[in-house]
Amino acid sequence: MNTTTTFRIGGDLEVRRLGFGAMRLPTEPADERAASVALLRRAVELGVTLVDTAHLYGWGANEELLAEALHPYPADLLVTTKVGVRQPAPGEWTYDARPASLRSQVDEALRRLRVERVELLQLHRIDPDTPLADQLGALGDLRSEGKVGRIGLSEVTVAELDEARSVVDIASVQNRYNLLDREHEPVLRACEAAGIAFLPWRPVAPGAADEHPVIRSVASELDATPTQIALAWLLARSPVMLPIPGTGSARHLEENVAAADLRLPREQYARLDGLLSEG
């Protein structure tokens, strides 16, 4: 089991391993936006040093929200964003990681986040209609120009990760993963072997953690909530694991952050670890 509290993304960019995903934060109306701003500031007060956003989240509105709340950014805060999709019509999205599109989206992200460089930029999805070497080559060019610090991927297989690493250095992978959904276990292990940060999206299975009897039992034994148990298990699972739970609730934010200090005894960890092999 892992007990480290920080990780160096790309070998040099140190963050606390429990971050915050901003996707669910509303940007309007005004009162809800104000609450989102307050929540982001509270996250930083609580010691969060990794905040995840994306071009897809509100088509830039989420990035602008982060800048409003947190700019000028604390020196130890990493705001990471994602590019590679576009909006063909209201309510729709599609892949678009053509080099020109990526360059445009990065420039937009820099403007919205009010920075000159995105320290960690992730390709939101691999575009099946554009050669991967062209997609990553464009991001590599942007890194050479100083607009991007490190490059990450999202929703990839081990084979895609290997192919990507033959083109550019990969600092992070963001795949779906949680206590009850370990489809991407091989990708996690590949990241661990290579020292690549693994940012699980949907780090807590919605509703399922609260309802599962084993998770509820362990939570009761440790005087914690099922969500805290699910997050603590992720942190114990691998030293490269950087969960980014999101919430619009200040109470849930504080609950999530507190999970970073929760240590699972070996017996409870083993029970949780074996959940998917039951029956």
Rank of each mutant, 00 (worst) to 15 (best):
E278D: 09
L46D: 10
L40V: 03
L70P: 03
G274L: 14
W201I: 08
L139R: 00
A75K: 13
A89F: 10
P200G: 04
L56G: 02
A22F: 06
E267S: 10
T53N: 10
L276Q: 11
E155A: 14
R117Q: 15
V15K: 01
A38V: 04
P72S: 09
V204D: 01
Q105N: 14
R176E: 15
L272A: 09
R86A: 12
G246S: 10
K82A: 05
W59A: 10
P131G: 06
A171Q: 00
Q174W: 08
R271H: 12
G246H: 03
V106I: 04
W93S: 12
V218C: 07
I196T: 15
V51W: 01
A250V: 11
G60W: 05
G21D: 05
G58L: 03
D210C: 06
L102G: 07
D129G: 13
E185A: 06
P243W: 08
R17H: 10
D169M: 12
L13H: 14
N256T: 13
R266A: 15
A38H: 12
L222P: 02
G21A: 08
V204Y: 00
A97P: 11
L102H: 05
L18Q: 07
D31F: 14
T94N: 13
P131S: 07
I126M: 11
V158C: 05
E119W: 13
